[in-house]
């Protein structure tokens, strides 16, 4: 069962996740001008919302995390030394 948490302090209320989600998992809370999760059962964990959210305000728990073979470990090693 997917759990989605929205960091209300971070959410800027742009509604990008509401527009982007193919399964209408999110809705705008007009009173707070923040996103709220209304349909977590239909979330397929595509994480398009993560990619589009400018504030990185959401977290998905208990999902299949796809392999990330594209991450270049050599580049990451260099970055880790700098950051």
């Amino acid at each position: 069962m997917v759990e989605i948490e929205i960091d209300e302090n971070a959410c800027v209320g742009c509604g990008s996740c509401v527009d982007d989600c193919p399964n209408d998992v999110y809705e705008m809370d007009e009173a707070k001008n923040k996103t709220k999760v209304v349909n977590a059962d239909d979330c397929m964990a595509c994480l398009s919302c993560h990619e589009i959210c400018p504030a990185e305000a959401m977290e998905h728990k208990n999902i299949h995390v796809a392999k990330r073979l594209y991450i270049d470990r050599k580049v990451n090693d260099v970055l880790n030394k700098i950051i």
Binding site: C46, L47, E51, V65
Partner: peptide, 10 residues
């Protein structure tokens, strides 16, 4: 292809 995402595609 219904939807594509960074973690899954429908």
């Amino acid at each position: 292809i219904d939807h594509v995402g960074p973690n899954a595609c429908l």
